[in-house]
């Protein structure tokens, strides 16, 4: 597997990624070792889903594979689940273009 496995719980694909992928079904309170400390999970995280390793502000870029995968739509604390409810894509957004045209 490429990347670094953190405590048998999460896969950190590239060092600069600010999220980690759960490699098991994880539970609230589980601790993922990171950067000399530990990230405590705020909620249950299913296998394959992502967890914030650092605090993210709205519009912050979320990185996985060392690449941008979207932007935060709200503040996200370390240990929180990162998914469609709190980050969004900036690509293929015909809906945004259509809304902007209506405003104009």
């Amino acid at each position: 597997m490429k990347g670094e496995v953190l405590g048998d719980l999460g896969l950190h694909m590239v060092a600069e990624d600010n999220v980690v992928t759960a490699i098991d079904d994880l539970e609230a309170g589980d601790e993922i070792p990171y950067d000399g400390g530990a990230i405590e999970l705020a909620e249950d995280i299913p296998f394959g889903h992502k967890i914030a390793l650092v605090a993210l502000e709205p519009d912050d870029t979320v990185r996985k594979y060392g690449e941008p995968i979207g932007q935060a739509t709200e503040a996200i604390a370390p240990g929180e689940w990162v998914h469609t409810h709190n980050i969004e894509s900036k690509r293929g957004r015909g809906d945004v273009d259509a809304a902007e045209e209506e405003v104009a």
Binding site: P46, I69, G94, D97
Partner: peptide, 27 residues
């Protein structure tokens, strides 16, 4: 997608992809 005024989200990634942990088309 832009021509049709629609959002790739919902189809890319699909609901099944999303349930499997994929959040955005970039990912």
């Amino acid at each position: 997608a832009e021509l049709m005024g629609v959002d790739l989200r919902g189809a890319q990634p699909s609901p099944g992809n999303q349930e499997g942990g994929l959040t955005t088309i970039e990912e």
